[in-house]
Write a protein that binds this DNA or RNA. Structure first.
Lengths: 336, 336
DNA sequence: CCAGACAGTCGAAGCGCTTCGACAGGAGAG
DNA sequence: CTCTCCTGTCGAAGCGCTTCGACTGTCTGG
């Protein structure tokens, strides 16, 4: 292992000079800098992370807490995680992967040990048990998701309320009057994960404004459960001509069912999904959808956190505006 | 921040004693231990990770390199990653998430800086560019996947060759004579990711032994691509009564196409998938499948690595035996 | 009853880096 | 031409922990 001291000796300067070359915290003459940089290259020097962390009390590590339970669609989590890792690297940070298993203890452990400089929490619940700890430990953190009380917290999320409104607007604009919402699994609502409820909120309030009739049903997803849900919906509201789906596992089953019943999409029935773009594009009918901007969320979260760590920027709630992409699954309501 | 010294003072012992209580590397009397533990609790002491890493040259961190490009089915990666993180914690390690983006440089960086004690590489290609570096840096590592040359390396993977053989055996046993294989995207084969080729190898050699006719076609996945692939297959081999699918994105399209053509599963056509259990169970027909033991792979990888770090166990290639679960998509070949 | 072994504790020396204050020398101002 | 102010560099003091050797008693066996 090559050390700072060896580099210094090789370059004929003091250790502190090498350190300053590396950090740029003091001005160094061009010639000295070059000599040092050359020595670094020749010796293949890599600063020791532990020593650095100890001396500077900065680990250059960001902790990312991903939920263990994964009601949330897994590829989205992964996409966020990758975006976080990639963005973090561009700012000189590495990412520590924490699973939800440890729960709040992980927050304590990471904050206490100085393992990470800050953390990003995914899948935050409305009343998340990690939040009090976070507030009291003064650990710089960014949440992906929106808890009930955001005071003193920095959050990034899709504006799900606007998303709901956008879906209703689109369908209302096409003349639909009866719309059904196939939602996430009941457990998601019971856990108060927020995003599902916020979407519903947006759907409902805009439906009220536009006079659109809305029927919401949670759904486990998968073929059997979706079949039951759709049957109930059509039984209760036979005139339903529009579906909003917020559940990746119900998308394909729904399309299969409609096909099976001879209801053409989009001629007889329009379908809008709130899902990752990939799901919308790869479905058997290319779906009109509001996509989940996973990458953007990850990127934003890191940038907010880095800003905090640099002493810039404070607590802020960033809600990304939803974008609805019209594809082949939505069209004018059929004339009855 | 509470330090070791403060705990020592509070407990009325020396710093080294506290350290030994924590590490258990020397015997400590029960009374002293209790006094120290009490102080630790009362003061809310957490050892500083950086200082520990510096003094002991052990970071208690495992680096996990996940590929950026994700031909491999994403949920599987995530499942492995979570299993790695969870298992690592039970051994006292945290997990650093590295994306493939940095490529081989990441190996250099991590090995050089002492950031991690060892690493786990996912999605290893047959001739992976990270391997030479790994070998020369003497960085303890475990691969998930099987490169062409495994000398000096520890690997964990599903036995894909046996998997292929198992699929053929099952279909041959049911009397099928003409079987088509819908494979991964062409890019996967071109990249020589190994697992696809090894499966094919197993399929082919067992097919030869049992006199079964095998037709293999790569497939991009998605509805359109799968439709083309299936049409070609049936055109070329109209008597095909069995499908082996190794491509999550082709599973549902294939089932939809068969349904559409009036071919009943499993009465007219049998389908076996090589995919995560979840995909097999949630498909529109419950699929007979060989599942990808993601969790087990993650767990194994960590345990191998921890063993290495503890100086136990050496280089080893662990191939997990495949298990075929019969569900509703396979049955006796139709009598012509 | 004493030598040797051993359990239990302490002090001190680092681990490799950052950072603060000090200082030499040159430039600019008066 | 002197005084001040930078710029560029160095030395030394830690950061909080681990670990080695040393020391003190207490046992045990001969």
């Amino acid at each position: 292992m090559v050390t700072l001291a060896e580099v210094a000796q090789h370059a004929g300067v003091s250790a502190s000079t090498v350190s300053y070359v590396l950090s740029g915290k003091r001005s160094i003459s061009a010639t000295t800098r070059q000599r040092v940089e050359r020595s670094i290259r020749e010796l293949g020097y890599h600063p020791n992370a532990g020593a650095r962390a100890l001396a500077s009390s900065r680990s250059n590590i960001i902790a990312l807490m991903v939920p263990l339970r994964t009601d949330m669609y897994v590829p989205v989590m992964m996409e966020i995680a990758i975006a976080v890792a990639t963005t973090a690297r561009t700012h000189g940070y590495d990412v520590l992967l924490l699973t939800g298993e440890e729960g709040p203890d992980a927050v304590r452990r990471v904050a206490g040990s100085g393992l990470a400089d800050g953390m990003i929490l995914m899948d935050v619940e409305l009343d998340d048990e990690r939040l009090p700890l976070l507030r009291e430990s003064a650990q710089p953190a960014v949440l992906i998701g929106l808890p009930a009380d955001t005071t003193g917290l920095t959050c990034v999320d899709l504006d799900f309320k606007a998303t709901g409104a956008l879906c209703v607007e689109h369908l209302a604009g096409l003349g639909h009057r009866d719309v059904a919402v196939i939602g996430e699994a009941p457990a998601v609502y019971e856990r108060h994960t927020g995003f599902a409820e916020r979407t519903l909120d947006g759907l409902r309030s805009r439906a009220r404004e536009t006079g659109l009739r809305l029927l919401h049903r949670p759904c486990e997803g998968g073929y059997d459960a979706t079949a039951v849900t759709v049957a109930r919906i059509l039984d209760e509201r036979p005139d339903t001509t529009g579906f909003v789906v917020q559940n990746e596992a119900a998308v394909e089953p729904l399309l299969a069912l409609l096909r099976q019943q001879g209801r053409a999409v989009p001629e007889d029935v329009s379908v809008i999904a709130v899902c990752p773009e990939q799901v919308a594009v790869q479905a058997s009918v290319r779906l009109t959808s509001v996509s989940l901007p996973a990458q953007e969320m990850g990127r934003h979260a890191v940038e907010q956190l880095v800003a905090k760590l640099d002493g810039r920027g404070g607590d802020e709630v960033v809600l990304l505006p939803p974008e609805l992409t019209v594809r082949a699954s939505s069209g004018p309501a059929p004339v009855l």
